[in-house]
Design a protein around this nucleic acid. Structure first.
Lengths: 334, 334
DNA sequence: CTGAAAGCGCTAACAA
DNA sequence: TTGTTAGCGCTTTCAG
């Protein structure tokens, strides 16, 4: 039997008789033979490897996404090569992280080691956009609109409105918002978008948004805690509810409220965004965005594209869902 | 100029004149030329890619390790391929996760796509041990003794003794311990080892270990919380201190104590293990084991081995350090 | 449906 | 120090 037939049998091509295919597979299993990745890649141009670029490797949310993507890709027979790319903050032009960033685009990705790339929450400058284009490999973005690429993104306005409307429906009128610093984190202006959704909901309910009710934090529990201390300590405002732009900040808010002697939800209702593992433990009402499923979905799009099952451009909105727990309740009559 | 010279120049071989080397590099940069990974691998047998096998992708500790390893490897020019391998629990023989596990060893790793493997907290059965041996590629284990392989591990007994001795030195005599289930998690008997260290310290201090003071949890905040409720609610015991086998469980203990109206450290001292990001926020005394540095160290060993700078077997103990914060204090006189 | 043969783009001997 | 050349182990036309 020729090497060509073996190759075709193992690749699952249709033009092999079931009988020989079975024989090849049996022999391969018995010998423990596995195709050499390098030789196969060199001959075919396909690597069976997908790159995943993540902005953070120490955040619960992104790791949930990674977990979902890795599993889906591995089950389809793909390796996953992980790249870590700290978000550009526009300030440190030639910092270590900026060097790593350009090295990724100019060196690592050019080695032609990946069949496709998953870019999570990645904003690209012109140079990077060109570099990705030159790869002529599919790139799928998760979390923000990447012009010209397949993209899955969350409707941040809708999510923020749902959270705010939930609090409004419970009778709250003085609703504070804890969000990220719009200058620092460049995640597609996600903080700004969520804030806009929050304000739009208020306006529709006939409430004038009060800038004093908006506080900035860095998307961590600590940040949410500090912001909440500042908020609740400010004598000029008297919020009865807080909408935090992430569950971690919401958990920080919960702990801060408790430390200040406010009961949740008695004195203060709190809602977050994400669907964090700990939300259930803390009884936190949240808008779940199913990050692990996001990872699976984006991986599936990559697989479909690589196997030619995908024709049209993808530009979908991700699902989200209000999960009510015990951190929100009807406004207590004064 | 021949392709061979270019190859040598770009590989940084010594046998190239500085002048031509410079010319090659300039030309390469100008053309945006980067060596094709597949062709290079096929010809040389080297992939410049290191596999990392992790038991969990959703735990803070392992992600810190991954972050450190990924950065060190990327800075040395290596790609990182991530494999997720849920720990074998001995029960579900033919579960999905068992299938994924055998597929990793029998298919993915045989593709010869990695120059070396980092195995984090991975216990191997005989088949797997053989499979790794057949790769004839360096394997470095982090977190447990892998016979015959380079290994970095934490002295769990020493860590547990340090934590316990810290509490003893503060005057505590009734010290509880929250640890993992020794049957369920097969992390090299880590929970059992830590418990042994705890008991050894007590015995040395002339205290009889009380099984009622030991509670099992699953290494999460929730688990630590529940275990602490059970512990503090048990009328038969009156601990004045808790040593938890992880910071997450310690944080759970802290929250549980607070919910039961016990002040920390007034009524109860609490110490954990890990050096979690949140330890500082919660004022948690901990034994820091510097997980991110562990990742860097294990990556560096791999790099040294691959570049031939490593001769002897490595079997080192990892550093750890007591970090005292405000969750532990001297025993209050009754 | 199967076989023969021509590379894929590099690296590493070996020569020069 | 550089050039020449023979593969590395597959996949894929092209024939049969």
């Amino acid at each position: 039997m020729s090497t060509a037939t073996v190759s075709r049998a193992l690749a699952g091509k249709s033009s092999v008789s079931p009988a020989t295919k079975a024989r090849v597979e049996a022999a391969a299993k018995q010998l423990g033979y596995v195709v050499s990745a390098a030789a196969s890649s060199l001959a075919s141009g396909r690597t069976r490897n997908v790159g995943v670029v993540m902005p953070y490797l120490d955040s619960w949310f992104f790791m949930a996404v990674l977990k979902g993507a890795q599993r889906t890709l591995a089950d389809a027979g793909y390796d996953v090569t992980l790249y870590h790319l700290a978000p550009a903050d526009g300030l440190e032009i030639d910092s270590e992280s900026a060097q790593r960033r350009s090295r990724l685009f100019d060196e690592f990705l050019r080695r032609q080691r990946v069949d496709a790339l998953i870019a999570v929450n990645l904003e690209l400058d012109d140079h990077e956009r060109t570099a990705l284009g030159d790869l002529s490999r599919p790139v799928v973005g998760l979390g923000g609109p990447l012009p010209g690429l397949h993209t899955l993104s969350l409707d941040d306005t809708g999510v923020a409105r749902l959270a705010t409307d939930h609090l409004l429906a419970l009778g709250h009128r003085s609703i504070a918002h804890i969000t990220g610093d719009p200058d620092f984190e460049r995640d597609f202006q996600m903080p700004a978008t969520r804030r806009a959704g929050y304000e739009a909901s208020l306006v529709e309910a006939g409430i004038e948004p009060d800038p004093l009710l908006v506080r900035h934090a860095n998307f961590t529990i600590e940040g949410g805690y500090d912001a909440t201390l500042r908020l609740l300590g400010d004598p000029r405002v008297h919020p009865t509810a807080i909408f935090a732009a992430s569950d971690e900040m919401a958990i920080g808010a919960l702990l801060a409220a408790r430390d200040l002697g406010r009961t949740v939800p008695g004195d203060l209702s709190i809602v977050g965004i994400d669907g964090h593992d700990l939300a259930d433990f803390f009884g936190l009402t949240t808008i779940d965005q199913f990050p692990e499923v996001q990872g699976q979905q984006v991986a599936q799009i990559v697989i479909d594209e690589l196997t030619g099952q995908l024709q049209d451009a993808v530009d979908e909105d991700l699902p989200y869902e209000l999960v009510v727990r015990r951190s929100t309740s009807r406004l207590r009559e004064a």
